[in-house]
């Protein structure tokens, strides 16, 4: 029963090898689906490109439904995995900072790495920025960030339990919301496409 490595059913070297192999798949899919094109990423905020929302929500739904059934069938014990604790205040504030960074920088950390690897110079600059930001955070941690980062600790919280509904119902509701979102963003992209230049449409590959 999974997860294998946390239960010592997989030796540490193989675990890292699996990490690298999963990374290869992740990097390949990010590039192949267009996440290395900064204009396609920014398109999620303006509606001219629906790629990000489709890939992102489909990935989340696939994993969510798959892991839910695996847990139900006893193939994996989710409680033994990396299950993030919720610190709502720093995540909300950090998320806002990331949202601004997304609009200004046109990437996020994962997409910038695959973009830089495929030769996007702007992504290389973005990565320099990320490292500067992380070093800056580390050097100012105890004076500026420590108390804020530790605030709002709620422990490990499942959103369905937090709302007070069954997990299966939550997944169903999220699926409905995702499908509605796909439809809205597709319509939005279609309306943009009618007034865009051929050059832009080709650049975005939509």
């Amino acid at each position: 029963m999974g997860p294998l490595y946390p239960q010592e059913l997989l030796n540490p070297e193989y675990n890292l090898l699996i990490g690298a192999l999963i990374g290869i798949g992740f990097g390949f899919l990010l590039e192949a689906s267009g996440f290395t094109n900064t204009r396609k990423l920014a398109g999620v905020f303006y509606g001219y490109d629906a790629t990000v929302i489709k890939v992102f929500f489909t990935a989340a739904l696939t994993a969510l439904i798959g892991l839910f059934f695996m847990h139900y069938l006893g193939w994996i014990d989710i409680t033994l995995t990396f299950y993030p604790k919720t610190f709502w205040i720093p995540t909300l504030i950090g998320g806002a900072i990331m949202g601004l960074g997304f609009v200004i920088g046109g990437f996020c950390p994962g997409t910038s790495l695959s973009a830089a690897a495929s030769g996007k110079v702007d992504a290389m600059a973005f990565i320099v920025g990320v490292m500067l930001g992380i070093f800056g955070f580390i050097f100012t941690y105890d004076t500026l960030w420590e108390s804020l980062r530790k605030s709002g600790n709620m422990g490990k919280v499942n959103i369905a339990q937090w709302i007070g509904i069954k997990e299966g119902l939550f997944i169903f509701l999220f699926t409905v919301i995702a499908i509605a979102t796909f439809w809205i963003f597709q319509k939005w992209q279609d309306s943009w496409k009618q007034k865009m230049s051929e050059e832009d449409i080709n650049d975005l590959g939509i």
Binding site: V103, G105, T111, L132, G133, N158
Partner: peptide, 30 residues
């Protein structure tokens, strides 16, 4: 933008992949 992400990820405990995508995959509130 990168600098903002560097700070935001360390404060918010992860980025679009680790915090959001992987968090949503296990229905974590975070």
């Amino acid at each position: 933008g990168g600098i903002l992400w560097g700070i935001g990820t360390q404060l918010g405990r992860g980025c679009t992949s680790g915090l959001v995508l992987s968090g949503m995959a296990v229905n974590s509130l975070s």
